[in-house]
């Protein structure tokens, strides 16, 4: 069974090392095709060429949510099955998830400037993503402030799961709050139904972003395994050091 095979970090390092160049290549090709299609996509009749921002904004928004979902699965792996790589996967995914969330926020804000006339409006979707970003930063802060990886891993796993339960509630609350404060008069991003000439490049870009994430995630997981190895070795060395009675 591959999952059991992968439980061995040494075997994981070997397998992921073989896989990584292929993934990186596939990601590059998908990105190149996606960018080409996005460059040739027609302008939106309402939003003009700014619709091109959507090709990076929407895939990063999807990824921002999907990565939290993946971290929740890894959290279950940590708490229920105690899979040795689960908290490595969760930790490695956190900064990448935060980065895609930041891309989503920045591109949304840059799209908002010509559309809304201001860089930031408390639009329901942007606000939900902002809170998601804060939660990513919180989990990162947690990982950074505790040096024992298994202790931090279990706490982060619980926090991730509680966050996953709360995210739909937050989304619902923010939507409700938004309709209370500003009736739907603003131009909504990606509001109207999407035409195939835009949908195809969008999906290719989404595929490219997923491949980029998988590549970076595998590489970051490898780094994390090596980091833990270094930590163990340093502790062994410190224990064996002479002159400490």
């Amino acid at each position: 069974m591959p999952l059991i095979d992968l439980a061995n970090p040494t075997r994981f390092l070997k397998l992921s090392g073989l896989l990584l160049p292929w993934l990186a290549g596939a990601a590059t090709i998908a990105l190149a095709v996606g960018l080409y299609l996005a460059g040739n996509a027609p302008d939106d009749y309402q939003q003009g060429a700014t619709v091109k921002i959507m090709f990076i904004h929407v895939p990063s928004a999807w990824l921002a949510m999907a990565i939290w979902g993946m971290m929740s699965l890894a959290a279950l792996g940590t708490l229920v099955w105690r899979h040795p790589l689960a908290d490595v996967a969760a930790k490695a995914a956190t900064p990448i998830g935060a980065a895609f969330t930041l891309i989503c926020l920045l591109t949304g804000s840059l799209w908002g400037r010509p559309m809304w006339g201001t860089y930031w409006v408390w639009d329901a979707r942007l606000t939900s993503v902002l809170i998601l970003f804060l939660m990513y930063l919180g989990v990162m802060a947690l990982w950074r402030s505790v040096d024992d990886p298994s202790r931090a891993g279990r706490a982060a796993a619980i926090l991730t799961l509680v966050g996953a339960i709360n995210l739909p509630i937050i989304k619902f609350s923010v939507d409700w709050w938004n309709t209370l404060h500003q009736p739907a008069s603003v131009v909504r991003i990606a509001g109207p139904a999407i035409h195939p000439t835009i949908l195809v490049p969008l999906l290719v870009m989404a595929l490219a972003f997923v491949l980029i994430f998988v590549t970076l995630h595998l590489a970051a997981m490898r780094n994390e395994i090596l980091r833990r190895r270094v930590r163990t070795l340093m502790m062994i060395e410190a224990q064996a050091a002479p002159g400490r009675g």
Binding site: I131, L137, G138, A141, S145, I170, S173, V174, W176, W177
Partner: peptide, 21 residues
Amino acid sequence: LRRGGLLLTVLILPLTVPVLI
């Protein structure tokens, strides 16, 4: 975590958004 104070506040505050709203 054997930590307190600001870290916990940072972790919990985003979860309180619906209650505040």
